[in-house]
Amino acid sequence: MPDALAPTMTGTLLAIRDLEAWYGESHVLHGVSIDIRPGEVVTLLGRNGAGKTSTLRAIMGLTGRRKGSIVFEGRETIRMSPDAIGRAGIGYCPEERGIFASLDVTENLMLPPRVRDGGLDIPTIHALFPNLKERARSPGTKLSGGEQQMLAIARILRTGAPLLLLDEPTEGLAPVIVQQIGAMIREIKQRGFTVLLVEQNFRFAQTVADRHYVMEHGRVVDAVENSEMAGSLDRLHAYLGV
């Protein structure tokens, strides 16, 4: 790991140390350490099964047993329940998007309780995502994949949570929608939110992120500044097998 990226405790929003996690008997994370500073967009890159999604789920307390340390805004959260972690100010957008079929679009949007001031209000959200206004009364899962992704992100922008965990928001979407999601993530960053993004597509990651962590076999094996991305392509190709 390059020295410039060595974790520093000062000014970190989220500091993860030696995080281990299990699903039942299956040991999925073997000591993950990550630091995120306020206002950054940081990606977790890696192949399928490397532990990216499990890392996000472990931060939210949604895996089984967890070990290690996850300090968010100076508070240790490793022993907190998922609802306490959510209320502490971490917004979660899961891989399968988690749009509820029995709730309409507005109900989906309003579902996560506000955890703090500073979230986007509804007019701002409707200005950013006009489709969500047009289709306010449709069942959530009748939206297109791209619209569902927008909804999944919009609803956590509303809550005021300063840290957003986005799990593969571009998965399965058409290139033009992927571009919109990219623009949206840059807009979120502009507004001062901090984002931890799981991605398989490092070309997309390159267009939105400040830094990248590479995961393999449940560990962080490398870290790359976005500015060094071009010079590190061979290394990344080797990790990601692309």
Binding site: M60, G61, L62, S81, P82, D83, A84, I85, G86, R87, Y92, P94, G98, F100, A101, S102, L103, E107, M110, L111, P112, P113, V115, I156, T159
Partner: peptide, 24 residues
């Protein structure tokens, strides 16, 4: 109602509703 929306959502995906900060 909002409570009802929590109930319906939790019927579909309780862990996610809990991660949103609801004491499921």
């Amino acid at each position: 109602t909002r409570l009802g929306a929590y109930l319906r959502a939790a019927t579909e995906n309780a862990p996610l509703v809990q991660a949103f900060g609801v004491n499921v």
